[in-house]
Amino acid sequence: MLTLLLEALKRMDYSVEERLLQSDEQAEKAMATYAEYYRTVVEPAPISIGDPMQRAHAIEEATKTYFSTRT
């Protein structure tokens, strides 16, 4: 379907530039890692009513710890 869409656009004199990742596997791995990170770090972070920066700092600290223990 993408082929057909691009072909139709090229017939309207559009040129095509590509800014692509290396592979679908790379993209899907990044999405899966992010989904796991979100479930583990972001969702459990406490909601701080009246002080949104408190939650932001908590997430940032938890993010540092999360990735430092995985590498």
Partner: peptide, 13 residues
């Protein structure tokens, strides 16, 4: 005018 399509994988690009 030069008309361009820029193709990305992620919308965030």
């Amino acid at each position: 005018s030069v008309k361009r399509i820029v193709l990305h994988n992620f919308h965030s690009q």
